[in-house]
Design a protein around this nucleic acid. Structure first.
Lengths: 107, 107
DNA sequence: ACTATGTACATCGCAATGCAAGGGTTAGGC
DNA sequence: GCCTAACCCTTGCATTGCGATGTACATAGT
């Protein structure tokens, strides 16, 4: 897997998941692992740093929730975060389009 | 445009173009500008640094060519470079698939 | 009681890299 | 002479993915 190719995509991945429902960190790793057919396991260092970053930018908020077996920190997307998610989706599609055009035919 | 989203994609873009025919730096900027409908103009700092990096990794080679109106440094893809390009393409598709799955439905 | 494993969050240091800003050369038009 | 375009290069900065490491608690096996 290309380390550098993850850059910039991680935020999009996280926000794409969290917009669907509030999630906690550890859960996100499991979900991504499953969605990728066990080919990708986001490292905890990457994840928690990214979540913190997104919270600082006010695209996510967090709250603690206690269960019988410990505490979990859930993340929720903000309105600004939703706008940013749309921007990132557009960006992704734009980039995908450019990559495909670049592979096609040069004049 | 998302600066971080370019990371990891730049190599793929450059190699996708150069595999079709040998190109020189300045020309690449023009081509990308055109393919993106004038929405993207790669900065020279980014481009020349990237080309140098790819050459160091032996995915590209370069040669000078003199014309009537000055000199140009052309870039050519190596066999290793072609393999790497395929790897990067697979990676891109894998990532695209993960992004789309992440946007769909959580269980 | 001890040990290992799984769940859960956090921080630090490293390396990679896009970009802005700056520098340099040559050629042609005004 | 001066400006613009074509062409290449370097330095410094900020961002960020990841591995390593630390902490805490619960559960299960021996």
């Amino acid at each position: 897997m290309d380390k550098e190719m993850m850059k910039g995509s991680i935020d999009l991945l996280l926000m794409s998941l969290i917009v669907q429902r509030d999630l906690y960190g550890y859960e996100i790793i499991q979900i991504l692992k499953q969605l990728s057919d066990e080919t990708y396991e986001m490292s905890e260092g990457t994840l928690y740093a990214a979540l913190k970053r997104l919270e600082k930018k006010e695209w996510l908020t967090s709250y603690w929730h206690a269960t019988e077996s410990g505490r979990r920190k859930y993340y929720h997307i903000t309105d600004t975060g939703k706008k940013e998610l749309n921007r990132k989706r557009d960006n992704w599609n734009w980039m995908d389009s450019l990559v495909r055009k670049s592979s096609e035919g040069l004049i």
